[in-house]
Amino acid sequence: MKIRQISVFLENRKGRLYEVCSLLGQAGINIRALTIAETESFGVLRMVVNKPDEAISLFRKHNITANLTDVVAVEVPDRPGGLAEVLKVLSDGNINVEYMYAFVEKFSEKALLVFRFDDPSGAHRVLTSAGVTVLTEKDLPNL
């Protein structure tokens, strides 16, 4: 029900994002979704990759601070108001969204969004009972 996100601590300096991404590229790890949150001095790169275990050991080997976080991948109707409908379900279910971002590519007629909740299990329950499709790592094609 949950998928694992890799979060990476990055200092705000030129070329750092490139270095991290090229490490993944050289290891044949594919990024499927990503977002960066930043402050004036540091940033946090969050991504869903096809080989999370390999990615985390790669980062550890290179002294890059990274960890795995449970996130929820949700199918959202790709039309005006589609996201709002899902958010209403969450809001009605009293589920707080920490942050969210979208997958790079579409796998179906629906858009695929990554949600970070403070209570992923509760969110999963609320979403599935409202009929929203929640994906597992296995569901994600080509992962």
């Binding site: 996100q5 979060s7 601590f9 949150a37 930043e38 402050t39 540091f42 946090v44 969050r46 601070t65 990274a66 960890n67 976080t69 920490e98 942050y99 970070r116």
Partner: peptide, 14 residues
């Protein structure tokens, strides 16, 4: 910042 104090949430890091 090592893994023990790192969080994926900016507000936690702040």
């Amino acid at each position: 910042v090592d893994e023990r104090i790192f969080s994926d949430e900016i507000k936690q890091m702040r």
